[in-house]
Structures are given as C-alpha cells and as structure tokens.
Simulated assay, not measured.
Amino acid sequence: METDFPVQGDNRETMKLLSKRIRACAAMAGSGDELARIAEIPRRTLESYLSGKSEPKAMRLASIVKATGVSANWLLTGEGTMMEDGSPVESQTEEEILKEYALIPGYNIQVSAGAGAFPEQNEKPSRKLAFRHKWLRFRGLREKDLVLVFAKGDSMEPTISDNNTLLIDTSQRDLQDGNIYVIRTDGHLIVKRVQQLLNKNILFISDNKTYKEMEISPQDLNDLEIIGKVAWIGKDV
C-alpha cells in the first residue's frame, strides 16, 4: 500500500511547484472540497498536498488526473500543457484559470439506452470539465445552458462512440435539419440526428446504418421532450 511522505529539504522546491499544479486542479474542480470528493482523496490528505507539506504517491496523482482530465505529464513534471487543447497554465494563478475557463457540470446520465432522467436544478454534478470562455463565445454557447452526459451504445457510430462525453446545449430545443439532439421518449433518453422531410414529418436517424430510422409526425412530436442539441463530443483516441 502506498503512503505519502513528508517533504524533505532537497525536495521542497519541486513540491512547491507540484502543489501549485494541484491547486490549479482544485480551481478547475471548483474547490478543494470538490476535488477531494471527485478524486476520492480524504480532505485532510489533499490539504497536505495543496500546502506542499507531503508528497503524493502515484495512486493519488492518478486519481487527480482521472477526476480532472489534466495531462499526467503536466501534473507530474510541469512540462507540456495542462489540457488537451494545448493551454499552458504553469504561469497562471487559480483566479486566472477560473477567468479563462468555464467549469461545465457533468452528470452520470447515459443517453441512447435505458431509462434516464435529466438532472434536476439542485442536483449535484459528479464532475466538471473546463472549457475556454473564448471557445464557448466563438460557438455561441452560454455556460448556464450547458451540461455533460455520457453516450451509451453504438447506434450513432462512427460519430458518437460508446461512453463518449456529450456537451448538450439545453437552450437549443427547436429541431434543425442535420443536427444531433438528445430526446426523451417513453421515459428513455436517446441521441439522434434530425432530418426534416417534405411532408413536415421528422426523421430521427442513427448514423450507424444497421439501426432503423424513426419517422415522427408533427402531432407525435408533442409526446417527445427535446432536451437539447449536442454541441461537442469528447472522444478517446
């Protein structure tokens, strides 16, 4: 079992820089309490890392990487970039990070299979992911309208794969031709591409052609709930 050790004299400068990077992760998560929760690290233990009093072992660092999505190389060494989009943050303070990034809440909700309920207003997110405010503005997205959920199944392959993260814009509920939406039907959440037909019916399309299309009349649309439009898809490579 790995244990944490007090910082020795020769290691103080290295730990000072590491604790700064861990504080940046806490800022991304929203607080030290939130980072401790999502990384499943005891709060007192995390506080010793944040203050630079003890050196976290690999298991704890791996938990922080998994919970926040930061680069393992960046967290361990300070080299490279913090996030996948190549954003260097070593010289940034926690306040500057929060000014540059929006922390979008993510929920343990799967779409395309099984019954599912979208989060209630006061429901606590299971994680948060950082998106640049500049990127959100460029895409015409507002932070307050956005949530993250998980895709389930292969019906939207190759566009969306099993367990991909989906960024949903809940303000976009008017169906537009060619876009992908999360829809609630019969108590289930599905994700489908939309095609508008000449007869004014709507076709829900799976990008995986082994799945049948669903044609919906304007009258039947009243029985569906449009949750929002898929604005971004997070993929593993």
Score class of each variant (00 low, 15 high):
Met28Leu: 15
Met28Ile: 15
Met28Gly: 08
Ala29Phe: 07
Ala29Thr: 09
Gly30Arg: 05
Gly30His: 07
Gly32Asn: 09
Gly32Ala: 11
Gly32Thr: 02
Glu34His: 09
Glu34Thr: 07
Leu35Ile: 03
Ala36Thr: 01
Ala36Asn: 03
Arg37Pro: 08
Arg37Tyr: 02
Arg37Ile: 01
Ile38Trp: 02
Ile38Cys: 10
Ile38Val: 14
Ala39Gly: 00
Glu40Ala: 10
Glu40Asn: 14
Glu40Leu: 12
Ile41Pro: 04
Pro42Leu: 05
Pro42Ser: 04
Pro42Ile: 11
Pro42Phe: 05
Pro42His: 06
Pro42Thr: 08
Arg43Asn: 08
Arg43Cys: 10
Arg44Ala: 15
Arg44Val: 13
Arg44Ser: 14
Thr45Asn: 04
Thr45Tyr: 14
Thr45Trp: 00
Thr45Lys: 12
Leu46Cys: 03
Leu46Ser: 02
Glu47Ser: 13
Glu47Gly: 13
Glu47Val: 11
Ser48Lys: 12
Tyr49Thr: 01
Leu50Asp: 12
Ser51Trp: 04
Ser51Gln: 04
Gly52Ala: 05
Gly52Asp: 05
Lys53Cys: 00
Lys53Thr: 11
Ser54His: 12
Ser54Pro: 05
Glu55Lys: 11
Glu55Pro: 04
Pro56Glu: 02
Pro56Leu: 05
Lys57Ser: 07
Lys57Ala: 15
Ala58Met: 13
Ala58Gln: 12
Ala58Val: 08
Ala58Ser: 14
Met59Ser: 14
Met59Thr: 14
Arg60Ala: 13
Arg60Phe: 06
Arg60Thr: 12
Leu61Arg: 15
Leu61Trp: 05
Leu61Phe: 04
Ala62Asn: 08
Ala62Phe: 04
Ala62Arg: 12
Ala62Val: 10
Ala62Leu: 13
Ser63Asn: 10
Ser63Cys: 13
Ile64Met: 11
Ile64Tyr: 09
Ile64Glu: 03
Ile64Asn: 08
Ile64Ala: 04
Val65Glu: 06
Val65Ala: 01
Val65Tyr: 09
Val65Asp: 03
Lys66Asp: 00
Lys66Leu: 07
Lys66Val: 01
Ala67Ile: 02
Ala67Tyr: 06
Ala67Thr: 09
Thr68Ile: 00
Thr68Lys: 03
Thr68Trp: 04
Thr68Leu: 04
Thr68Pro: 02
Thr68Asn: 03
Gly69Lys: 00
Gly69Val: 11
Gly69Thr: 02
Val70Gln: 08
Ser71His: 01
Ser71Leu: 09
Ser71Phe: 04
Ala72Thr: 11
Asn73Val: 15
Asn73Ile: 10
Trp74Arg: 02
Leu75Asn: 04
Leu75Cys: 07
Leu75Gln: 06
Leu75Trp: 05
Leu76Met: 09
Leu76Arg: 03
Leu76Gln: 04
Thr77Cys: 10
Thr77His: 07
Thr77Pro: 05
Thr77Gly: 11
Gly78Lys: 01
Gly78Ala: 08
Gly78Trp: 02
Glu79Pro: 06
Glu79Val: 01
Thr81Ile: 00
Thr81Asp: 07
Met82Gly: 03
Met82Ile: 11
Met83Lys: 06
Met83Ile: 14
Met83Cys: 09
Met83Gln: 07
Met83Asp: 13
Met83Leu: 09
Glu84Arg: 15
Glu84Asn: 14
Asp85Glu: 15
Gly86His: 11
Gly86Ile: 13
Gly86Tyr: 03
Ser87Val: 12
Ser87Arg: 12
Ser87His: 13
Pro88Gly: 03
Pro88Gln: 07
Val89Lys: 09
Val89Glu: 13
Glu90Gln: 13
Ser91Val: 06
Gln92Val: 00
Gln92Asp: 10
Gln92Ser: 08
